[in-house]
Design a binder for these strands. Sequence first.
DNA 1: CATGAATGAGGTTTCATTCAT
DNA 2: GATGAATGAAACCTCATTCAT
Lengths: 213, 213, 213, 213
Amino acid sequence: MKPPAFGKTRVRDAEATRARILKAAVREFARHGYAGARGERIAKTARSSERMVYYYFANKEGLFRAALETVYASLRDAERTVHLDDEDPLAALESFCRFVWDYYLQHPEFIGLVNTENLQQARHLRRSPRLGELVSPVVGLLAELLERGQRAGAMRPGVDPAQLYVSIASLGYFYLSNQHTLSAVLGRDLLAPEHLQAHWRSAADMIRRYVAV
Amino acid sequence: MKPPAFGKTRVRDAEATRARILKAAVREFARHGYAGARGERIAKTARSSERMVYYYFANKEGLFRAALETVYASLRDAERTVHLDDEDPLAALESFCRFVWDYYLQHPEFIGLVNTENLQQARHLRRSPRLGELVSPVVGLLAELLERGQRAGAMRPGVDPAQLYVSIASLGYFYLSNQHTLSAVLGRDLLAPEHLQAHWRSAADMIRRYVAV
Amino acid sequence: MKPPAFGKTRVRDAEATRARILKAAVREFARHGYAGARGERIAKTARSSERMVYYYFANKEGLFRAALETVYASLRDAERTVHLDDEDPLAALESFCRFVWDYYLQHPEFIGLVNTENLQQARHLRRSPRLGELVSPVVGLLAELLERGQRAGAMRPGVDPAQLYVSIASLGYFYLSNQHTLSAVLGRDLLAPEHLQAHWRSAADMIRRYVAV
Amino acid sequence: MKPPAFGKTRVRDAEATRARILKAAVREFARHGYAGARGERIAKTARSSERMVYYYFANKEGLFRAALETVYASLRDAERTVHLDDEDPLAALESFCRFVWDYYLQHPEFIGLVNTENLQQARHLRRSPRLGELVSPVVGLLAELLERGQRAGAMRPGVDPAQLYVSIASLGYFYLSNQHTLSAVLGRDLLAPEHLQAHWRSAADMIRRYVAV
DNA sequence: CATGAATGAGGTTTCATTCAT
DNA sequence: GATGAATGAAACCTCATTCAT
């Protein structure tokens, strides 16, 4: 785990500990909510001590803030890799949908933390101006895509890019965030590959039909 | 069930007290999550005592279970009033969307509790077979509607009613459940009437386009 | 269960309820100690309500007092049936030992309650003058027996009857009262018939050798 | 085990605090039984806080377990000092009786805790295999003593050492454990020196007569 | 950089008991 | 005579946090 010991090796150890704690915190907050998260569990998961948590993050609040920033930063980094320009517009839109939904699927801790933050009325997010830049780039890309699709005669005018982004998010996020109650109520395991596939397909279809001419 | 009320009737105190506690619990759990909910706050809101909470509901777990059942029962009762047969199919579909979204809008505690239950992986719901009957009636109605719409030449075939239901729910639930983070990120107040209206309109439009021929 | 309904029948019901509660209380206090005894459990065992417990016995203290008096009264009643005069003195002594030990064996609740009372430094017993008459009769009988045995040349002089009584009690009571820790420590089940028999036999032997010439 | 004490050594506070709590717990459980024991009282007696009790012993159960182990360990340590070989056999037996009875007399908390453990059917003891070694050494010593006494022509054959040990324990334990009810019933203070002496003397006599030829 | 010991405040739950009819 | 509803007080226990090295 540790890099070979030459020069300022110990410095990296400190950051590694901090990183392990942060990762454990993301997981813990996502799984148990803010009040349900336990410092002890975080320390243990991080193979560190509760004392270290306070050493690096001052208090629970600070730890949560850091955890929230982490998951948003990860999303932002992922979104920076999105490119929608070199394809047929409708195909580009569909691949964007898949990107968003795959991201949710592979980052359940994002959903957990965002739900927790919403329970708290986005208390932290509202105060964190750095996070304001979050969605804008992607909404911008969608706007360009819509325009390009229109010019190509493949998409209709009048679609609001922000609204489209929220709709795409809705169809993926809700399905995963509420998978447990929905599974119970519908009597099927929503994460089973066949159901997941079916949902992705019809959701993509819905988005396509919404913007297509 | 209740004895006839005569004189200075205090007879119904028991049920009234229980009901006040339950209502307060729904609100508290919805606002603060399971772990964050405080017995003291519930007691105070219910103008009762913490002791009474345990008298009627045994423990926090029991109280949560009761609260969850309450909100699901309310939804079920509301859904029982839905009728989709006496209208033009597409109009009926739209009015169903409005019903669902209005319900979410007017019952934020439903969203709060359901999110909390999902955080716990639907632990309670899975064990409560009474709640299994929940969505089915509405999904059935949607199936009938789709068939009718098809026969009338207004709707296309091949739409899965359960999937349609989940999509309708997604578009309303996510918008409200995540209103705080979205508002922060998009830089607008999503609950402002104009934005809400715009969202409802485009979401209904999306649903309509999805099923229309 | 109820006597045939003629005349003042309900009166008996009341006493029957009281009796059931008392019996349940004896059992509960014996098993769980004073502080560990639960009104709820007593009520349930007695097929009555907690409210009735207070109705008949005022409070926990009163209930314990009544329970303690009950078990001592039962012992007293049993001891009243003891007769040591129509036998060979040493045989009479042995049969007295068996009486005492059988009583303990068949009334574990006596041991439980007496231990509990001792934990409380005999708080109740000391204030209950009615119970003073308890052992005296039996000690008196033992005194007579010793005298008779002496006259018959079968027993030695100089044995204090009270002390003899305490010794007989010790050998039976301790074995049963401490059966669980002793069983654990000695690695055998002290209540198994063979061990019980062996203990009774050697204890009786010890008593016999103590008084024999 | 402990780090060297230098300067204003507070280093050993941990163990000292733990020890004070444990001592207070032994006393409290012995006096009030398991359910009657109060955390607050233990904390105060230990000049510590209730919080510390949980810090060191996790919960009431853990504290009781530790307390029980403590008193058994003390008895074991005391029993390790017993030597029965350098004396006239009958005198050695008598001095062993005195050792046992003195121990009970000087350790009332042993009796209190053991009674409490028996009320719980030796729940803890049964699971604690470490305590299995408890009596064996002493029973072994008694066996040797009996053999030696036999060879010397002072003791009769056929006495079971374990049974002898239990009898010796009985005569001392019961007298002290039940001193309060016995005092009330017999109308004398059993702890008064003259009565205690008389009991010790006649009990020792009983044991002697039991094994002597 | 790291850690073991300590703790105030408050959370959930239980218990014996009383109120009001 | 009997009962359902209600409750104050205190019990056990947990949590986030700080002290002292």
